[in-house]
Amino acid sequence: MPQFLAQTLNGLTLAGIIFLVSSGFTLVFGVMRVTNLSHGAVYLLGGYTGYSVIGATHNFFYGLVAAAVAMAVFGFLLERTLISWLHRSEMSELLATLGLIYVIDDIALAIWGGSPLTINLPGFLGKSSTLPLAGGIVYPNGRLFILAISVVVAVGLYALLRRTRVGAIIRAGVDDRDMVNALGINVRRVFSLVFTLGALLAGFAGVLGGTVLNLYTGGDSDILLFALAVVIVGGLGSYEGAILGSLVIGLVDNYGTAYFPSVAYSILFLPVIIVLLVKPRGLLGKAST
């Protein structure tokens, strides 16, 4: 039982990281209809950036902030150049961001090399505590920290989407983009904002992810698959779907790794298949998308 509980916590931690990546991915798709395949590469680049900044400043939190800001700037520039040049052609955007993966991965390989890197958490976060659960299991503080941060971000984003004017515009954009445009709202600025926010979250997740999953060449395609599985399960473009999907995928992947290691990666596909057969638009997907 304690072991199962620890695995569940691991799964929730993973779900947290996956959520940080997939929420941006799904919002960008929902509002802009852009499938940014390089989203995973942005995550990886964020992780590497954080690694270097932490190495230079010896401060984990500087690294976390620097990676988030750097990736936000990167995302902003990407949206203003490549994405806007290709606007309104879904497949072209998808293919161009596929090309971008090769570029980002290759440059990351040139700078940070091919061996896996791990980001160490500082002080208290690097230690473990005994939890008052199931007779006291010892669990790393860092993972609880990731879990807590993901919950804070999830609630914060929810409040942004549900309680603010910008959020209302974003939600309206997901429902009916043309109507939002017709109402005289500057959709361009909303696009920029959403894309930048998505990249910021991915960079942020890269540093957090780098503490529990390694940073390595090809790690971006693993994260991308997680994000894709999440949006299939949850529904492309749905924020609540991203939360639900992340929980499902994070837990399934972690139980799979723990209990069925030889097919762990493939077990992820099980919820995806089931959802596709039962509800092809995803559990919380909108009928019109």
Binding site: L82, W85, L86, S92, L95, A96, L98, G99, L100, I101, Y102, V103, D105, D106, I107
Partner: peptide, 14 residues
């Protein structure tokens, strides 16, 4: 060469 290949794909799409 992978960078060049990625850029080629982007250029073709554009």
């Amino acid at each position: 060469w992978q960078t060049l290949m990625g850029l080629t794909l982007i250029a073709v799409v554009l």
